[in-house]
Design a protein around this nucleic acid. Sequence first.
DNA 1: TGAATAGTGTCTATAAGACAATATCCC
DNA 2: GGGATATTGTCTTATAGACACTATTCA
Lengths: 255, 255
Amino acid sequence: MGQALEPTRDESSEERAFLASYKASEFDRPSVAVDVVLLTAEGGSLHVLLTQRDEHPFKGGWALPGGFVRMDESLDEAAARVLQNKASLSGVFLEQLYTFGGVRRDPRMRVVSVAYYALVEPGRLRGVAPTGLTTRCLARLGLVGEGEVGGDAVAFGADGALPLAFDHAEMLGMVVRRLRGKLDYAPIGFELLPEEFTLRRLQAVHETIMGRALNKDAFRRRMLAGGMLQATGRRETEVGHRPAELYRFITKAAR
Amino acid sequence: MGQALEPTRDESSEERAFLASYKASEFDRPSVAVDVVLLTAEGGSLHVLLTQRDEHPFKGGWALPGGFVRMDESLDEAAARVLQNKASLSGVFLEQLYTFGGVRRDPRMRVVSVAYYALVEPGRLRGVAPTGLTTRCLARLGLVGEGEVGGDAVAFGADGALPLAFDHAEMLGMVVRRLRGKLDYAPIGFELLPEEFTLRRLQAVHETIMGRALNKDAFRRRMLAGGMLQATGRRETEVGHRPAELYRFITKAAR
DNA sequence: TGAATAGTGTCTATAAGACAATATCCC
DNA sequence: GGGATATTGTCTTATAGACACTATTCA
């Protein structure tokens, strides 16, 4: 570039005086948190990791895993830390979703929350939310205004819809719409599958995200023409019918 | 919904005790700011409002208009306030872009900045940045890695590329890519035009955003088929050739 | 009348949808 | 062999790009 200024090189006495006199804590400021929407796709539905709150506010309600951003970590790092601490996951797809900053979204105090979403294949979530636990669950995700622009999402537990804390229903609605929008041009379907998969499984993931059936022929053609799939030569086994070829996702760099 | 908990109704003594004991200012926290990318399209280029910094850091560099978020306003409201104060604009398209939260993006202190972008027609920017002023300008915007996924943008003033403060080159790069991605399915081209416009002008705006020529016939067909345009019956005047019909953008609601 | 762009109609190439035919596994 | 799904090939239809032709304004 050569265009950006280099602040560290510009250590004039004038600047040093300015920095010394700058009172960083002079004003009230919001807290900054990250919330992570950890998603997986299984059984034709998206599932999201939720934890039950044992304190006020929204005591007993279900919330996304989150935490406050530390002074020595970036937002991305904070989201990765939350994912590591709450789900023992690292190295997964993790991307910023949107930042929620309503004045009263947390009744305790002003909290600006940067929402992230993570995508992981079901196999990596074994043990993260064992059935039977009441404090955390993988809830099935459904949209309220199906097919509409705005609207919240609903999370279903074993006994029906779960009460969601804060504005987390809005976050969940936004993440589904974001996925649907990105699916056509970003390689996000692969993030929800193991390393090797059949075209049928990939289509099932896409159908799960879109919430509707897709044309098999067109899907197959589009995927193979897209140049992001590499045939392994191997085939699935023990399926009770003709086994399909296993494919692998190849990044642009590896092509 | 009926699923969300209602915190205000849940005023048990237990909750009141909790809220009273909650120490909101116990921890260090980042400052929260908004930066606004105010864009318009003219002469085949996108233009962005920049102000020259007269203080450290990045003294003399060019920055997006921005400001700290107040405790009594949402992020959207803060962005609208900045737009009103710095450009005397209200009621324009304004949408969140991305949140930048690198640890050292501001050398003074930790600042998390929520970037917004606003779109206005050139006519509404008359007087906002008069030529000749040295403290603010409407800079022509160009992408660095044209056609690539990532990469910064460059802002050109009268004398060439302007040095951009903070991570604002990254914000500008992101806004161009966001616009290109949204153009196909969101009605954002209209936001950069006056209320009535010809198809040729609309195509010029799309070409400006995409940075490449578009097929005239296909563009025309697609726009007319999209159902978002209403012919006014009037035509442009004084153009030195056959005048084109004037169209108006109609929202879904008005259809 | 000429220059310049608007607007229409038609042909072709490409991608999507539908559907039939064949292939290959497990039981 | 029968059941089930994979895979291939073909036909039809919708859309994008190319291009020719006509229309309308101002100079």
